[in-house]
């Protein structure tokens, strides 16, 4: 199963190697990794997307927690979270296809950021699968170069207006029940 793990680390040299080393030593694959400073300049946030069964993920998290320079590890997978990735895609175009490519970009709400006589570069953000979908749409035109940032993610602040699919089902069920009760009374 795909897991998105958010890690707060000391902003020091060598921390990335320790984490990457841990994954490689255990034979776990990193699907994507992104690093950047947080609101506190002494702390960086890493977002790692990896695959594994529950036991493997449990071991990964335990081992990450053991590293001295790691401050906090959260597996976002089991809670509501916002996930975004950015990609720059350079597509081969000619005067006949340029319009099509721009049209596809519009549908994905992507922006054209560079244009040349034979290429067009678009910037797209969204969940990883949206980006993959857009890449697949553009592939027939010929992708010259591609750069993806990897996923960044944050936990959602849960205040009642955002529900998980389970909770939505529960709310629907309750409202149906209420309707049935009202009908009976009426």
């Amino acid at each position: 199963m795909r897991h998105t793990i958010s890690i707060l680390v000391e902003n020091k040299f060598g921390v990335l190697t320790r984490i990457a080393g841990l994954f490689s030593a255990k034979g776990y694959n990193i699907e994507s990794i992104s690093v950047g400073p947080t609101e506190d300049p002494s702390i960086s946030r890493m977002t790692i997307v990896t695959n594994g069964d529950d036991d493997q993920i449990e071991q990964i998290i335990k081992h990450l927690n053991k590293l001295i320079d790691i401050l906090k590890v959260v597996d976002l997978t089991n809670e509501p979270f916002v996930e975004r990735e950015l990609a720059l895609i350079k597509v081969k175009v000619n005067p006949y296809t340029r319009g099509d490519v721009i049209e596809i970009s519009d549908i994905f709400r992507a922006k054209v950021v560079d244009i040349g006589p034979t290429t067009l570069t678009v910037e797209v953000t969204g969940k990883s699968d949206k980006i993959t979908a857009m890449i697949n749409m553009l592939a027939p035109y010929g992708i010259v170069e591609l750069a993806r940032t990897g996923v960044v993610a944050l936990k959602r602040e849960f205040k009642g207006e955002v529900y998980t699919s389970k909770e939505i089902k529960l709310i629907k069920k309750k409202s149906r029940q209420k309707q049935v009760e009202d009908d009976e009374k009426g």
Binding site: D55, E58, Q59, K62, H63, N65, K66
Partner: peptide
């Protein structure tokens, strides 16, 4: 004392 030693080999 090491959480990663638990349930590593034997659940």
């Amino acid at each position: 004392i090491d959480p990663s030693s638990i349930s590593k080999n034997i659940k």
